[in-house]
Amino acid sequence: MTYFTLSLTLLFVLIPLILAHVLKLNIEKDIIIATSRSIVQLLLVGYLLQFIFDQNDPLFMILMVGLIIFAATHNARKKGVNIKGITWKLILTYTTIEILTQSILIGLNITPATPQYVIPISGMVVGNAMVLSILFLNRLTDEVEDKQSQIELILSLGGSPKQAIHRQLITSIKASTVPTIETQKTMGLVQLPGMMSGQIIAGADPIQAVQFQLLILFILLTTAIITSVMLGYLSYPALFTEKMQLNDNLK
């Protein structure tokens, strides 16, 4: 695709801009900012990826994966500011799923250890984990706020913090993984996944594209469960004091 052709795609941005203006939705500024940011960010990433692919040096590849984990942590931590140590807990979770995923893929010779494979797969895995952690942290905070009396009831009966928060933890883990599971149920019926569609458009064999997409789906399912369970069990102790009381900033 040439830059001229790419500029023609901006016509698609014109349509929501016109609609927003006519219907007085007052989102024109946001549309322009979102469009500008996506152009700049994606082009920058494109050039950065081009540079890394050209170097073919594992150090650059690891730095890029580190950058992905850093960006995801920075974004998700805002939802868990009440949880002490949330930053390192997110970094540990994302790093664990990244190592686990790449160990299986590279260890079993499913994908080669080259930046062309490692970086996009890391982006998908950590990106999905980031969305999931935001959903999880949102839900857990809401659950603790709503069910404070149930949590304190269990504490007052002599239960441990883990027993007191068990129900809320399970509800939050379930709630955050449901979107990933539900999306997989309708995959191919309602939507063709972006990566698979991209490969087909780029001329790949559809069966090959499907096989690759299935691989990604299974990875995302595994990492979704691991992310919420790991984050849940790392986070809950921070909701309580040493004296096994609910933290004041959560009440």
Partner: peptide
């Protein structure tokens, strides 16, 4: 231990 104490001093709300 808070867990032991809370069993010995029960509360009804």
């Amino acid at each position: 231990n808070p867990m032991t104490l809370r069993k010995k001093v029960g509360v009804v709300l």
